[in-house]
Amino acid sequence: MRQFACAVCAHIYDEAIGDPENGIPAGTLWEDVPDDWVCPECGVAKSDFEMVDP
């Protein structure tokens, strides 16, 4: 599973964990996260996230 970091606040979206509090179940792949999902920490768009090097 991959991780993606917010370019503004460095919050990590981890596919293994998802974002269950905001309706994204654990195991949700990044491409399946809806485009209108926003960073739960700072509110920037999904497009402002980048993949973390494994």
Binding site: Q3, A5, C6, A7, V8, C9, A10, I12, V52, D53, P54
Partner: peptide, 14 residues
């Protein structure tokens, strides 16, 4: 750049 990223850059491979 993301300033908060500076303090966890080693762990995230940055």
């Amino acid at each position: 750049y993301s300033k908060p990223m500076l303090s966890n850059a080693l762990a995230t491979g940055k």
